[in-house]
């Protein structure tokens, strides 16, 4: 068995594996979060090396940005003392994990070779979808039902996080001068990037999810720097969170009633419909993620 792999790729895979082990093993929360952020960054690089620039972009913005902000914010609360597991539990767990890994490795090593059928089908039909980028075509035309359910899950998660939170986030943050300067410099850039990712998604890597994550990151920055009129609280925030799912369901109904069937987009107006629904989704995802961050904020006066 000969290895045919570049130095950079080998280092990258080793780094990802080591970071995964370290993120799980280090006992302190702060260290664990720090290693996990590195893991996310390495994953984004790895996705780029695996010819998946869309995923790399989403991983960088969501894994590093939004999840990172959530985890770092959670560090503010003190780590409770957890009793260590018994030795035999750990041994059994590791043995079971090793067996499961060997089984999964057997499965992936016996996968039949790629038939190339799905990419060919996508390639054949892409002219009729209204999107030039294959991933966008899959997400919003061929398998738009998945995306519809996804936005429903995100919406449910937002309201679950809001319901669980103790509502101590209903407090406005006051802004100091420096923070306001940072916000004024960063927010236009974030807004521009979000719009660019949205528009670019039809022809090249980018799209609603990356743009939505960018909107979410921007709203979190706006909240932390005390920018006014950027709140995701209250009725307006909730309306914006729901609007993505509602618009998608309305589109599904109107295609079922007036068109050729559920979510079958007509060739002539498909690109407009996709861009429209992507814009609404980006807003919903962005406001939703920012709301999840807010719901996780700590009580005022709690030790930091």
């Amino acid at each position: 068995m000969s290895l045919d792999i570049g130095v950079f790729d080998a280092l990258l895979l080793t780094g990802v594996l080591l970071a995964a082990v370290a993120a799980v093993l280090v006992p302190r929360r702060t260290a664990s979060v720090a290693v996990f952020l590195v893991f996310g960054l390495l994953l984004a690089l790895l996705w780029a090396r695996l010819d998946a620039p869309d995923i790399a972009l989403a991983e960088a913005v969501l894994g590093g940005g939004v999840t990172g902000a959530l985890l770092v914010d959670a560090l503010a609360s003190k780590q409770p003392h957890a009793p260590p597991r018994r030795l035999w539990t750990v041994v059994v767990g590791i043995v079971a994990g090793t067996i499961a890994f060997l089984a999964a490795a057997c499965v992936v090593s016996r996968l039949s070779g790629p038939t190339g059928e799905l990419p060919r089908l996508v390639d054949d039909q892409i002219a009729t979808t209204g999107a030039e980028h294959p991933v966008t075509a899959v997400l919003l035309n061929f398998r738009s039902f998945d995306t519809l359910l996804e936005i429903a899950v995100v919406m449910a998660a937002v309201f679950a996080a809001t319901a669980v939170s103790d509502r101590s986030w209903a407090r406005e943050l006051s802004a100091s001068g420096e923070l306001r300067t940072i916000a004024m410099a960063l927010l236009p850039v974030v807004a521009l990037l979000a719009v660019w990712m949205l528009i670019a998604g039809t022809t090249r890597p980018g799209g609603a999810f990356q743009a939505g994550a960018m909107v979410g990151a921007g709203l979190v920055i706006a909240h932390l720097t005390g920018t006014r009129h950027a709140s995701t609280r209250g009725r307006w925030g909730e309306a914006l969170i729901v609007v993505g799912l509602v618009a998608f369901i309305l589109l599904a109904f109107s295609t079922a009633v007036a068109g050729e069937g559920w979510l079958v987009l007509g060739e002539s107006w498909a690109s407009a419909a996709i861009l429209g629904i992507e814009a609404v989704l980006a807003v919903s995802i962005g406001v939703g993620l920012a709301r999840i961050f807010l719901a996780n904020r700590n009580e005022p006066g709690e030790a930091r």
Binding site: D51, V135, D146, G212
Partner: peptide
């Protein structure tokens, strides 16, 4: 030419995972 279908699945998964992490942390 990378297969866009699994890529789209992963893209959906990343967004869901971020949302689920938020709920779990809360």
């Amino acid at each position: 030419v990378p297969d866009p279908v699994p890529q789209a699945l992963v893209l959906t998964g990343i967004v869901i995972m971020a949302a689920v992490t938020g709920v779990a942390l809360a």
